[in-house]
Simulated assay, not measured.
Amino acid sequence: MHNNSRENLSMRKLISGFLIAGLLLTPTKLDAWGFQGHEYIGEMTWNYLTPEARAWVQERMDIVGEDSLATMTTWADRVRGTEEGRWMGPLHFANVPPDEDYFDLERDCPNRRCVVGAAMNDIEVMLDPTRSAEEQARALRTFTHWITDMHQPLHMGYQHDRGGNDIRVTFFGSETNLHRLWDTVMIRGMDDMPSPAMQAQLHSLPEPRDDWHQALVDWANESSDLARANAYPNAEDGAALGERYFRQARPVVENQLILSAQRMARIINDAASRSESAQ
């Protein structure tokens, strides 16, 4: 088979997959990365944890009744429509004004009522060895979601379009919105990505940061920049998107999944190490 024929066949399969994925999407689902993306990140994170950190996480997962770090990452979305989770709605995102070029905690996250502030609050509990295992378990459960949400660029998108939720687009002919496109549709078309365990082998952990609060602000700014540079351009309301948009967006999506796992792992390893040192 000639190269052009193979490429055409590959593209037809890709388009078919996206059409099926579009049909499977429910119009009310607003989960960042979708469950598939969150669980991919959680499983990759587990592969980066030290033995001490795995034991620390396992003890806390047992307390809150979670079976794995992968499924724990989805808890905040699983309870989102319930009384228990409804108050956390504003904690899934943050918005940088279109006329500003950086995220500012005081301006964009008053009283820490946004995804960045929520992650900060949880880190403070996780890193404090004087806090109970129960308190740390609850903080870990939500932190694993906030850190993954932060790395989906449109969770640092604009308020006026609700992070792309109000921008209707077609993707390979299937109707969706820009937020959902980045959450779930493109990831479902990336089934040739390495497994989470293989990704962890391919990408070594970066050096830890001295100030996790500043790190969160830096990562929020990275996501905001990616939203402006990669998600929003050429994706105005009513746009028809396809191969070109996907080819540009795919490496961004995959890299954000990897970075989210690495950064989550670094923070959990730090928390476990502090608990171990305090004993």
Results as ranks from 00 to 15, higher is better:
G117R: 03
P153T: 11
R247Y: 07
R78L: 12
A70S: 05
A133Y: 06
S10W: 12
N165H: 15
V217M: 02
T170Q: 00
M88Y: 08
A278P: 01
L25Y: 08
A55S: 00
A271V: 13
V115R: 01
A229L: 15
E83V: 06
D192N: 11
I15N: 04
A94G: 14
Q256D: 12
D218S: 09
C109Y: 10
R244M: 12
T170Y: 03
V252L: 07
N255P: 01
D101K: 08
V252T: 10
G81K: 14
G42M: 03
V125G: 02
G89R: 11
E43H: 04
M120S: 11
V252N: 01
R54V: 05
Q248V: 05
I20R: 13
T142A: 00
D225H: 15
G85M: 12
P98D: 06
A235H: 03
P206H: 12
A235T: 00
D122M: 08
A231D: 04
P153W: 02
V125M: 04
N47S: 11
A261Y: 01
D101S: 13
G189L: 00
L24H: 11
N121A: 14
A229I: 14
G89M: 06
E207D: 07
I258H: 12
I147F: 00
N3V: 13
P110N: 13
R86C: 08
A239S: 09
A94P: 13
H179I: 02
T82K: 13
L205Y: 07
A249M: 10
V64M: 02
E66N: 02
D192C: 02
A239G: 05
H160Y: 10
P129E: 14
D149T: 03
R209F: 02
R266N: 03
